[in-house]
């Protein structure tokens, strides 16, 4: 794994001179001595690559440095306190409510988006006529081009008012499940976890379906045709060869989608009415997420308040980092296998 391994695309051609300018190993075709142009260009590109690592490290460093004073000043328990009062005289803030609603909306989005995305990916790769399938894929991808704030506006002005019937119906028939129990007397305004979950589901659908589509498209042709030749129906072929092959890809795609949903800001800010507190009734009473809390509070925040927001941002960063890390590890293990 060191310097002189044959380098992927440039196998055996011009040698890659080692950075230190060490003498070329005997027997190797050394096309040219190390030229200054090469050295400059190489360093430039290495520096550009290093920038990525630098930025990621800097994000972590700056967020941590700012978080510490706020966490020191905090008199409430950071993980169990539900209110956000960092600029009051006893400094009190905690992420319990933020964490709860962030995970709740994210999970709701996953539950709705993953089955549909798998269906979409299967439809485009194995059901739609080949001629139109890429066009259909393009249409689904267009969903990713809609800005988050437009989702918010649409969710507020169109989706929420139209969900009243569903909320009441769920309450009537499934009210015995606390999740769907609507206990308030007034008409639901639907600025809830449930609505936010639907919006997020729509937003992450193109991400999950496009990755799944790619994976389903890579199923070895032999396996597909072997299944069909044995007399399998199309669904049996998918169940026996496509789904097992694509499982890890779909899992990592879903996790990536979850990561996107957890960090989504404006759509949720607009669609969820702000309530600090934990409530399992997803069709009532609003909530607050990490990202939304930052977007709403940054304007009025004082010094401690700003640092407290940065501390919550650090939590969000760590969560999404963990989520993306696991997704990437799954993808890479699959590639390696």
């Amino acid at each position: 794994m060191r310097e002189r391994e044959p380098v992927g695309p440039t196998i055996g051609t011009a040698t890659t001179p080692s950075v230190g300018g060490g003498p070329p190993v005997a027997g190797e075709i050394s096309g040219a001595a190390v030229r200054p142009g090469d050295r400059v260009f190489r360093s430039l590109s290495v520096a550009a690559g290093a920038t990525v690592l630098l930025i990621m490290a800097a994000i972590a460093a700056f967020l941590i440095v700012r978080s510490v004073p706020a966490l020191r000043a905090n008199t409430a328990d950071f993980f169990t306190f539900e209110q956000w009062l960092p600029d009051e005289s006893p400094v009190q803030f905690g992420i319990a409510a933020l964490l709860f609603h962030t995970l709740m909306t994210g999970l709701l989005a996953m539950i709705m988006a993953v089955p549909v995305s798998i269906g979409v990916a299967l439809f485009i790769t194995y059901y739609a006529p080949r001629r139109v399938s890429s066009t259909l894929g393009y249409f689904v991808d267009l969903l990713a081009a809609v800005p988050s704030i437009v989702y918010g506006l649409w969710g507020f002005a169109f989706l929420a008012p139209n969900l009243t019937g569903l909320t009441l119906w769920l309450d009537k028939w499934f009210g015995w499940i606390p999740l769907f129990d609507y206990q308030l007397q007034n008409r639901p305004n639907n600025l809830t976890d449930f609505t936010a979950g639907i919006i997020l589901a729509i937003m992450i659908l193109p991400i999950i379906s496009s990755i799944s589509r790619e994976v389903f498209g890579q199923v070895p042709r032999d396996q597909v045709e072997a299944a069909l030749a044995l007399g399998a129906t199309r669904w049996e072929m998918i169940r026996t060869s496509v789904l097992p092959f694509g499982r890890s890809g779909v899992v990592s795609a879903s996790i990536l989608g979850l990561g996107r949903a957890l960090g989504e800001t404006l759509a949720v800010t607009i669609v969820l009415s702000t309530v600090y507190g934990i409530s399992w009734h997803i069709t009532q009473s609003g909530g607050v997420t990490f990202a939304m809390n930052i977007a709403l509070k940054y304007g009025e925040a004082g010094t401690v308040g700003t640092n407290a927001l940065i501390a919550s941002g650090l939590c969000l960063f760590i969560i999404t980092l963990a989520v993306n890390f696991s997704a990437q590890l799954i993808i890479r293990r699959r590639k390696g296998a």
């Binding site: 960090g263 999404t320 989520v323």
Partner: peptide, 8 residues
């Protein structure tokens, strides 16, 4: 990095 939330 692709997954870093925009607000972060």
């Amino acid at each position: 990095m692709t997954g870093v939330p925009s607000i972060v």
